[in-house]
């Protein structure tokens, strides 16, 4: 998606992809000003122009919805998000819609694009790490720059590992166990006598415990839905030497392997899927008969699915 918004005082040029984009960063870097300028555009202010396009498809003014901090939308946002499709919703951090208990379900069911201005860690949204941006002034134009990486897989750094900590399914754990000769975490971990399923919301907590027991850990996560947890993981890692495997998702990785040769990215997911992870899972299920997350499919035991050098582990 290309967003071009120009008023007398500010000019914005964004390149975005996928359903959710997050604008975050320091105060006073004109994130809210972007939203206010968009409101002026929607209200027909003459000196403000805007062009939002997805390839040849243009998002028209009436298909842009703006939820600012000072206008209550908690009673109206649900019908707007669920009735419309392929629209753009721009939401500021203190909008009261985030107080609604149903907000997670509404976002996930909605087939629209979102630009969310916020520093809050919203664990209920599957944000891609490479969809988190800050704003930078480049020659008078405010552009979005990635906070962490241009592409999720740029975060991958694999050194020595004798223990793999992953938040993923039984299938991916079985994949690691089959192809790599090292320990892989269990499906559950226990903290303070409470058993937790090893999902992306507790990977960093599990890492805190495991760093005491293992010297060489590889943390593997589906970066296309891990955006909000990545900051927490970085804080836990601190200055420790921890290997990271930041594939877009396990299924996305398998699809790219030579056997299937299918390359999917956020543009393919569009707003029809909440994340590239979700799209990749559905696509893999379509092409690999009998694929499920509860076990390792026999086809996936082929060595051609190992694209990272075995010698590093």
């Amino acid at each position: 998606m290309h967003v071009s918004l120009a008023g007398k005082k500010n000019r914005y040029e964004f390149e975005l992809a996928g359903k959710y984009s997050i604008l975050t960063g320091n105060s006073a870097d004109r994130k809210t000003e972007f939203l206010k300028t968009m409101i002026r555009y929607k209200n027909g202010v003459r000196s403000v122009s805007c062009n939002i396009s997805l390839g040849s498809y243009k998002i028209r003014k009436e298909n842009i919805f703006v939820y600012s901090n000072d206008v209550s939308a908690i009673d109206s946002y649900r019908s707007a998000m669920l009735k419309h499709t392929d629209c753009l919703f721009i939401i500021d951090e203190s909008s009261d819609i985030f107080r609604d208990r149903e907000v997670a379900a509404v976002f996930q069911a909605s087939k629209n694009y979102y630009i969310i201005i916020s520093r809050e860690i919203m664990g209920w949204l599957p944000i891609s790490i490479d969809s988190i941006y800050t704003l930078v002034n480049q020659n008078g134009v405010l552009v979005n720059v990635p906070k962490y990486c241009e592409n999720n897989e740029d975060l991958t750094k694999i050194k020595k590992a004798d223990y793999i900590l992953t938040e993923d399914s039984k299938s991916s754990r079985a994949f690691f166990q089959y192809h790599f000769q090292c320990d892989v975490c269990d499906r559950y971990y226990t903290k303070e006598n409470i058993r937790h399923t090893m999902d992306n919301s507790c990977l960093h907590s599990a890492l805190m415990e495991e760093m005491e027991k293992h010297r060489h850990i590889l943390v593997a996560f589906d970066a296309s839905a891990y955006g909000y947890f990545y900051e927490l993981l970085l804080k836990v890692i601190g200055s420790r030497d921890v290997s990271i495997l930041a594939w877009n998702s396990y299924e996305n990785y398998l699809l790219r392997c030579p056997k299937f040769g299918i390359h999917l990215n956020k543009d393919d997911a569009g707003c029809a899927y909440n994340s590239l992870e979700e799209l990749s899972y559905h696509r893999l299920r379509e092409i690999l008969s009998g694929y499920s997350i509860s076990g390792l499919h026999s086809v996936l035991k082929d060595s051609s699915f190992v694209q990272y050098p075995l010698t590093l582990i």
Binding site: I121, M122, G123, W124, S201, C202, H204, S205, M208, Y228, L232, K235, V236, G238
Partner: peptide, 17 residues
Amino acid sequence: YREYELDAVMGVTECMF
């Protein structure tokens, strides 16, 4: 400060949802 960072990780995790 490190204790704050780790406490913040846990605190934010506990109230994330």
